[in-house]
Amino acid sequence: MKVFKNPYILLRKIIKIYNLFFLSLFFKKYGKGTRIEKAYFLTPESIELGKGVLICQGARIEGVSNYEETEFNPLIKLEDNVSIQQNIHLTCANSIIIKKNTAIAANVTITDIIHPYEDISIPIEKQPIIYKKVEIGEECKIYNNAVILPGVILGKHCVVAANSVVREGLYPDYSILAGSPAVIIKKYDIKLKKWRKNE
């Protein structure tokens, strides 16, 4: 009877049941303890969610399976304990993998899609898309309003500063990136056991 005396406890239980028995049916994988709050998914069958994933409200996570008569086989994989705050925009035609224990703040954009503009006789949105895989390593922190572009491979325990735009490239473990376009401003020196400015 205590549940009915506190409507918030009842609501939490209903949301938990909804997550476990309804949402989980639509995803390619849906790990134990994963929580989704008012997010929008296109092609959830292409999305794998590990254990303890949190996706906050306003998230738009979509696999692009067809664009301008071309078929794609997208894979969006969020490993264990990935947390995504509100209003992320994540679009994928090939693969976006976010590894375990990575935290993504609000209003971040992550995409593996490029819209070509070279042919001026065709509107940009009508031209065939190009894609390059994106991978974000374990234990990373992506701060507010950052943009992760196609072809970014981010190593373990990296930080992307707020409002940064990360372009295609391989960024090593233990790096701090900032700016637009983002550059590595600090690296962790394993031998000295401290962070040093990148020279």
Rank of each mutant, 00 (worst) to 15 (best):
I113R: 00
I61Y: 06
R35A: 00
D80C: 12
T70K: 15
A106R: 06
P123A: 11
G137A: 06
T43I: 03
T70M: 12
I136W: 05
T70G: 00
G52Y: 03
E79Q: 15
L75D: 04
Q86N: 14
E138M: 02
I47W: 06
V53D: 00
Y40M: 02
Q85N: 13
Q127V: 10
V82L: 08
I76A: 09
E118R: 04
Q127S: 11
Q127A: 08
I55E: 03
P123K: 12
E37L: 12
E71Y: 12
V64F: 05
E37A: 11
H89S: 14
A93H: 06
V53P: 07
I122A: 09
A103W: 00
F41D: 01
K51G: 06
P116W: 07
V108F: 06
E118A: 13
T70S: 12
I114Y: 15
I88Y: 03
D80V: 10
F41I: 01
T111V: 05
A105D: 08
E71D: 15
I61H: 04
Q85H: 11
T43D: 12
A59V: 05
N107C: 07
K126C: 13
A59P: 02
I129S: 07
D112Q: 06
E45R: 01
L75E: 08
Q57H: 13
S46Y: 02
T91Q: 09
G63L: 04
K99C: 10
F72D: 01
G52D: 04
G52Q: 02
P74S: 05
D119C: 07
G50V: 09
Q86F: 10
R35M: 10
I124W: 01
N81K: 10
P116E: 09
K51D: 13
I129A: 08
F41Y: 03
S83F: 04
D112K: 00
A39Q: 03
E138S: 08
G137Y: 05
L49V: 09
Y131I: 02
I114D: 14
E48R: 07
D80I: 07
I61W: 05
Y117V: 15
E37N: 15
N94G: 11
Q85Y: 05
T102E: 08
A39S: 14
G58A: 06
I84L: 13
K99H: 15
N87G: 00
